[in-house]
Amino acid sequence: MEQNITQYTNMSNKATSPFSKPWSEQALLVQVLVGIFLYVNCLMICTFFKKEAFRTDTRYILFAQTLFMDSALMVFTDLALIGSYFQIPVPCIPCVIMCTIMAWLTISTPLTLVAMCLERYVAICMPLRHASISTTRTRLLGLVLIWCFSSIPALIVFFIFTSSVPLSFFSTYLICTVEMMIVHNWQAQIRAALFQFYFVIMSIAIGFTYVKITAAARAASDNKKSASKGLRTVVLHAFQLLLCLIQLLCPYVEMAVMKIDIKLFINVRYFNFVVFMLASRCLSPLIYGLRDEKFFLVLRYYAVFGLNIKDLYLCRFCPHYFKHGKTGPLGSSIKTIG
């Protein structure tokens, strides 16, 4: 424990001014990607709140929660990345709070995606019971359970950390990283065991639901193009969940690399951030936003501030256009969006 505390304290003592180190191409690229990601997510969140039909649909509610959690996680992670890159020391207490929130949000996204799988499973495999199961009460209960279960690993690490370090440590300044809160080897083992348990449970739930959904889609669909699109969505969603679950193991790889070479540690962390943080989170807008015709139609209208006269007319003056359905360019029916 004393070795870990001394390590991060020494790093803080050697920290330099953020203006004494130039921005590298990698750091600038990350900031551009984060900016684009946050802009798209904010636009989709605004689109979600614009239409009542989205706010009362369980699928879109879970999608909006994913956007909110991913955006918050991206902001906190990017701040920590900038602080680590420029070696900026920060007070211990705000760092501990931020690391706990990041650990909380990291688990929340995969759990929300599992909940979306279960919702789709009920909608496709049990359509007659979907309306009775997907109610306001069950939605609220589901959201509460997601936040509660995702908080367990973060709170365990938080309480172990606060009970292990001396009180004087909370008045120090240090480089804020999630590894800072691992002060015991057995603490890392407990967190790894929790992550493995979550990994197994989520993998079983995802595998079961997607096998059932794929079988039901093939049995019920007479249109090969529609079935092919559904299978592509399944593959993208499964790939996103795989990246999110692999991200749970990244801190252990980074901690092992940090003991070998600090420069290699920075490169590995940069790779993990781009591949397992940015890439996995960017798939949510692609799968549930841009590829969903009903959501994309409203998103396109608000993205151009209503400059598209045709969409303005259809959304505001022709509600029957959506109620009775219209055949879009892909040959699928666009139903009412409120």
Rank of each mutant, 00 (worst) to 15 (best):
Q187M: 13
T177D: 08
V165A: 09
A154M: 03
F169E: 14
V144C: 08
S164T: 15
L155W: 10
N185A: 08
P153S: 10
S168C: 15
H184G: 09
L174H: 11
F161C: 09
L143C: 03
Y173Q: 15
V157Q: 03
H184Y: 13
C176P: 06
I156T: 10
W147H: 04
Q187G: 05
Q189S: 07
L174F: 12
I190K: 00
A154F: 02
C176F: 06
A192G: 06
T172M: 14
W186G: 02
L194N: 02
P166V: 12
L145S: 12
L194T: 04
F158E: 05
H184W: 13
N185C: 03
V165P: 00
F170G: 10
S164A: 12
V165N: 06
V157T: 07
T162G: 05
F159G: 00
S151W: 04
V157E: 00
F158T: 13
F158V: 10
S171Y: 15
A192I: 03
I160Y: 07
T172L: 14
T162C: 12
L194A: 02
I160T: 12
S164C: 12
I156W: 05
M180F: 12
F161S: 08
H184I: 13
P166F: 13
P166T: 12
V165F: 07
G142M: 04
S151N: 06
L141E: 08
T162W: 10
L167T: 14
A193Y: 02
L141C: 11
L155N: 09
S171N: 15
A188H: 01
L194W: 01
F158W: 11
A188Y: 01
Q189E: 10
F158H: 12
S151K: 05
S151F: 13
F169L: 15
L143A: 05
W147N: 03
W147I: 00
I146R: 00
A154H: 03
M181L: 14
Q189Y: 03
L174Q: 12
I190T: 11
V178E: 07
N185V: 07
S150R: 04
C176W: 02
M180E: 05
T172Y: 12
T162L: 13
A154L: 03
F170C: 13
S150C: 10
Q189L: 08
M180C: 09
F149K: 03
S150E: 02
L174R: 12
S151M: 11
F149H: 06
C148M: 08
S168A: 15
E179H: 07
A193E: 03
I152Y: 05
G142W: 00
F170S: 11
I175R: 02
S150Q: 04
S150V: 05
A154R: 01
W147F: 04
R191T: 04
Q187F: 04
